[in-house]
Simulated scan of single mutants.
Amino acid sequence: MALEAAGDGSAGSGRRSSRLAARCALLLLPVAAAAVTLALPPDRPRLFGIPLFYVLHFAVCLLSAAVTALLRRLSRASAEPLEPRSVER
Rank of each mutant, 00 (worst) to 15 (best):
S18G: 06
R23S: 13
A69E: 10
D43W: 08
L20M: 15
P30Y: 12
A32N: 09
L40E: 05
A66G: 06
E83D: 10
R16S: 02
L70P: 01
L40K: 02
T68P: 05
F48M: 10
R72T: 09
L29F: 12
A32E: 04
A32D: 08
A5V: 00
A79F: 06
G14P: 00
L38V: 01
P30L: 12
R15S: 14
A6T: 04
L74D: 06
L27I: 05
L26G: 09
L3V: 14
G9N: 02
V67T: 14
L27Y: 13
L27H: 14
V60S: 04
S10G: 03
R23P: 06
A21Y: 06
T37F: 03
L38Q: 01
A34P: 08
E83M: 01
L56S: 11
A2V: 12
D8S: 13
F53I: 11
A22S: 12
L28D: 02
V31E: 12
M1V: 06
C61A: 15
R23W: 09
A79M: 03
A65P: 02
E88N: 07
A2I: 07
V67H: 07
S10Y: 03
A69Q: 11
A35C: 14
A33W: 11
A25N: 01
L74W: 01
P41R: 03
E88L: 10
L71R: 05
T37S: 14
R16D: 03
